[in-house]
Write a protein that binds this DNA or RNA. Sequence first.
DNA 1: TTAATATATGAACAGTTATTCATATATTGA
DNA 2: TCAATATATGAATAACTGTTCATATATTAA
Lengths: 116, 116
Amino acid sequence: MKTCDREAQHHMAAEAAKANMPSEEDVGRVASVFKAISEPSRLKILFALRQGEMCVFHIVEAVGGTQSAVSHQLRILRDSRMIKARRDGQNIVYSLADEHVLAVLELVCTHLNCKL
Amino acid sequence: MKTCDREAQHHMAAEAAKANMPSEEDVGRVASVFKAISEPSRLKILFALRQGEMCVFHIVEAVGGTQSAVSHQLRILRDSRMIKARRDGQNIVYSLADEHVLAVLELVCTHLNCKL
DNA sequence: TTAATATATGAACAGTTATTCATATATTGA
DNA sequence: TCAATATATGAATAACTGTTCATATATTAA
């Protein structure tokens, strides 16, 4: 059964790929991180939070859109642990969860050659 | 007009965020990179190609699913420059586009503490 | 407690996307 | 040329996702 000109080589790669494929669960977790940061509206929130923590009112001011839309996106970013929240009196103050978030953004930005 | 207890601080951050916000176009480009790698089926293809180049037949073998579905995903990954293709006789051989792809994956995986 | 403010959220709708099915294109060997 | 094989792709459908609107919750000040 010949499948391609490099059968032996590709077959070994395929077997190794299957052996080293992360679990469905891990693949799903990685995917959901990327999904969280793959919408322009959410990316803008992350870019905005590079300047430091902000309450919702100011995030809306920084990124535009309605309060409701921003609030929904904040929930998604929070659920996927990209940002963290703390209450401060009447406000909820958001900030980037950790350095990894910025690191990933910067890696892709430099790759794309777009200025941060 | 008081908006929050840290009006001055947050306002400054919001202004800085607006001033430093990447252009709509750049935000969109970054978003589309993340979108490309935010589906489990596409992520599996990238994980598989860590083992080296493979033709479509073997990619299907490694990640599962139908030939058609894999082919559609390959196109998306190719359009977003995450993988590259070359013809080799009857086959099309795919491989990761560059080191950045793996770097981003590894960064997120270590962040999530899942084994590669 | 009541009014005002800040934030969150459920439901509905519109737009997007992944998969399947059928079929098309391209290469090779006869 | 024709048959076989490998890969790609358009259309259709089903599932998913972002936004809006209306409303709910939580905190503070009076």
